[in-house]
Write a protein that binds this DNA or RNA. Sequence first.
DNA 1: CCGGATGTTCACCT
DNA 2: GAGGTGAACATCCG
Length: 258
Amino acid sequence: MPELIEVELYRRVVDRAVGRRIAGVDAPDAWFCKGVDPATLVAALTGRTLEGTRRRGKLLLVDTDGPVLGLRFGMTGRVLVDGAGPIERLEYSSGRDDPAWCRFGLRFTDGGDLALIDPRRLGGVELDPDEDRLGPDAATVGRAALRDLLARSQAPLKARLMDQARLAGVGNLICDETLWRARLDPARPAGSLTPAEVGRLHRHLRATIALLTERGGSHTGDLQAQRSRDGRCPTCHRLLLRRTVGGRTTYSCPHHQR
DNA sequence: CCGGATGTTCACCT
DNA sequence: GAGGTGAACATCCG
């Protein structure tokens, strides 16, 4: 699930726990603790109070009166506070809930808790993550900054937009939906966009993020509904082109996207 | 049974 | 240096 949109929903969930004090930490999976061993993580967080939450791209940051806790969700991670997640009616899970999938947890002194559930284990937790390894957040990036991060690059437009070090938060689904709405070919060299095209991309990037957030997730796009072999362009109903761009499966309309 | 999936990192090529 | 590819992680779904 997690792209920028989902992580923002998770941030609001974790925000419910701000002000609480950590009574205990569960870190049963050393592999899930990135750059720290579980014992160090437990010691660093126990007794701390949550002071606030932030998000940069797909990285969820939890400020405490001690270290900053970084939460990543990979492809299948989600977070629960006091057993509850975001108000998500389109949760795709088929009712599975294996306790072994809880990769990290906080117990609070008020009796509540936070749990990071991640079946595929592609997410992770980190202490004091290096936030500057990420580019500006895609939800708020300015037009000039977007222009600059695309300029002079021969890489495919899609690869550049999904390069988290240059622009943070855009995942495969948001990217395809945005480029379809902006009528831009994902394989175009990033640096080949005209100023008008950059403006269009900037407008559609923000509009698409806002729309999909309102609809409830990265998977609610119009193009997403056609993301299958015989998918067709929602606008002209021609068969969509399916190929790999920037290492990811990409759908686009060869008629509309240039 | 097989392939692919909303992500990231790293080794290894060109 | 810039890009590209494939592997790895573990599970579900078509």
